[in-house]
Amino acid sequence: MKKSLEKLLNKPLPGDPLLPHKALITDVEELAPGHKRFSFSFLDEKLNETWEHIPGQFVMITVPKAGEIPISICSSPTRKGTIELTVRKVGRKTEVLHQMKPGDVVAIRGPYGNGFPVEIMEGHNVLIIAGGLGLAPLRSLIWYILDKRPLYKEVYILYGTRNYESVLYKEEMRRLRKRPDVKCLYILDKIENEEDRAWTDREGLLTELIPEVDLDPADTYVAVCGPPVAYKFIGKELLKNGYPESQVFVSLERKMECGIGKCGHCQIGYKFTCVDGPIFPLWDTKNLPEML
């Protein structure tokens, strides 16, 4: 028997990685039409203390009777005790989740995926680009960086949505704009009413903001998350503006069933989004053409 396999087969039985932990919904907030923020804490008190994650990682949440869904964690690991998820009502499982209320029990396992390379980013500028619901995993990164602000140089946040109504975390994003230690540029697809105008005077595509970022691209790490169609354009624009491919990180979405590299659904070329991602450097697109 070969050593490598002998080792594998002679191991004691490991814990079941697919077994989730019970969690309580502690708070639900309607962010925008069809979008809610859910806060959870584990029934197992110890787990609340020991739980750690990296911004950009995700969990698998069991919606009772409906099934499991992969959802990015949108709270920062620097704020312990509760996990927050931003959920858009889009399919058969999220519809059921959206009907759930504080006090209801769900089950959560994770965290999964690689997360943003927050430690590598230390000592550099950070440019965060969010489109629509893409803000969710980046919110975790934003608060992580702001809580450890001295470790990073300049921080930029670019956020694009359809209109003011669909802006997520409206209050938070408004407060961010007032902070002196972070530069925020917000844009809307179309400005149609007073509310929109009060939010921003910028109208157009998220990509238009990129040239306005006043950072040295070579000293900047970029984190991008948005709808699947946006990546190609954002990627192109970033490269045009001199950001190195190895320093641009995109957070990708795929169908997932297991989160641990066993179900296969999330494969992008030779990589699994769940274990090798969901955060990929733009450099990977060279080998994985179907990525974006």
Partner: peptide, 22 residues
Amino acid sequence: ISILDSVYLKENPDPRYLEVRK
């Protein structure tokens, strides 16, 4: 089967697969 062993047992090992294999 040795490929499946690697798939199921290397990363995030599956206790069920291992039990069956044993």
